[in-house]
Lab assay of single mutants.
Amino acid sequence: NKFNKEMRNAYWEILLLPNLNEQQKRAFIRSLYDDPSQSANLLAEAKKLNDAQA
């Protein structure tokens, strides 16, 4: 399933972002589970926040 693969990839990438705190990571991951079809958008948002907090 395409969404499962995308979601899994986004999950691990979000977990490994160094500048997000645990609460932020949990919020993004919760959103991933709520709507896996938004994986790419959520990952992009997480990366943007990660860069902003660098």
Rank of each mutant, 00 (worst) to 15 (best):
E13R: 15
K47G: 03
A27K: 09
N50R: 02
A10R: 03
Q23K: 10
D34W: 10
A40N: 08
L15T: 09
F3K: 11
D34A: 13
N9Y: 15
S37K: 12
R26W: 13
L49W: 12
N9L: 13
I29R: 04
L20V: 10
N41F: 15
P18R: 15
Q38M: 05
K25N: 01
L32M: 04
A44T: 12
K48D: 07
E13I: 15
S37W: 11
N21F: 15
N41P: 04
Q38I: 09
A44P: 02
N9P: 01
L42Y: 10
D35M: 14
A46N: 00
Y11W: 06
Q23M: 11
R26H: 04
P36K: 05
N9I: 15
A52T: 09
E6T: 04
L32Y: 01
I29S: 03
K2N: 13
N41Q: 09
W12A: 07
A44G: 09
Q23G: 09
I14D: 00
A10H: 03
D51P: 02
D34S: 14
R26Y: 13
L20E: 00
R30V: 04
A27R: 10
Q53N: 08
A52I: 12
A52L: 08
F3M: 10
F28I: 03
Y33I: 06
A54Y: 11
M7P: 01
K47V: 10
K2R: 09
I14N: 00
A46S: 08
N9E: 11
I29M: 04
M7V: 08
L15V: 12
A10G: 02
Y11H: 06
Q24T: 05
L20Q: 00
W12I: 04
L20H: 00
Q23W: 15
E13F: 15
L15P: 01
R8G: 02
R8V: 04
Q53F: 11
K2G: 14
D35A: 10
D35Q: 15
N21D: 09
A46Q: 00
K25P: 00
K2M: 09
E22Y: 14
R8E: 14
A54S: 09
Y11M: 13
R8P: 01
K25M: 06
S37E: 07
A54Q: 10
K5W: 03
E13G: 15
L43D: 00
L15H: 09
I14H: 00
K48R: 09
F3N: 12
